[in-house]
Amino acid sequence: MELTEKYPALAIGDFLAIHIPDPGEEHSFVEGMREDLEVLGDLRDSGMSHGHVPYPEARGLLPWGDSSDGDLFYWKTTDEGPDTWTILVSGRNDDWCEFKGGLTEYLAGLVSGTVPPDGLPPDFPGRTPSVDSD
């Protein structure tokens, strides 16, 4: 919540976009989330989700972003609440990589170079990444 309050729109390097609802467009945002969860359910049903399941199933994945290359970003939920959720990257090449930390820590680490871009292009975000917020 704090991240979205500070940055109502957020993109890193014209590549990674964070899903944040626009005021008055919450219905469209929810529909997009449902579509993302349905795609993950289809992957699960066809045996291509590496055992991951969509939210609200136990330990289900909840989408929070995507990339211009088709990578998808999720929170891996737990019963203990959002403070215990981890980051899961579903790379377009069928890479599934987990980061044991929160969203802000993950994004800041990508930009600073302290978090490797597992599942993403190896040169992301580059030497001087742009962080755009509107």
Rank of each mutant, 00 (worst) to 15 (best):
E25F: 01
S133Y: 14
D22C: 12
V89P: 10
D95C: 04
K76H: 13
I12T: 11
E25D: 12
P21T: 01
S130G: 14
G119H: 09
F73L: 15
T84W: 10
A108I: 08
E31T: 01
V53L: 11
E57D: 11
D22V: 15
G24N: 01
D83E: 14
W96L: 07
Y7R: 11
N93P: 00
S130V: 07
P82A: 15
D83H: 15
G47F: 06
D66H: 15
L43K: 14
M33E: 09
K6G: 02
L43C: 09
S133C: 11
T128W: 11
L10D: 05
D69I: 04
P56E: 06
D134H: 14
F124V: 04
E5Q: 14
E31Y: 00
S90T: 02
D22W: 07
S68E: 14
D14Q: 10
F73E: 10
D36H: 13
I18A: 12
L37P: 03
P125I: 00
G126E: 06
M33P: 02
S67V: 01
R34W: 10
V111C: 09
T78I: 03
G13I: 05
L72I: 05
S28N: 13
T78M: 03
L16H: 04
T114Q: 15
L88P: 06
F73S: 02
G13M: 02
G47V: 08
V53H: 11
M1H: 13
G70C: 06
G126D: 02
T77W: 00
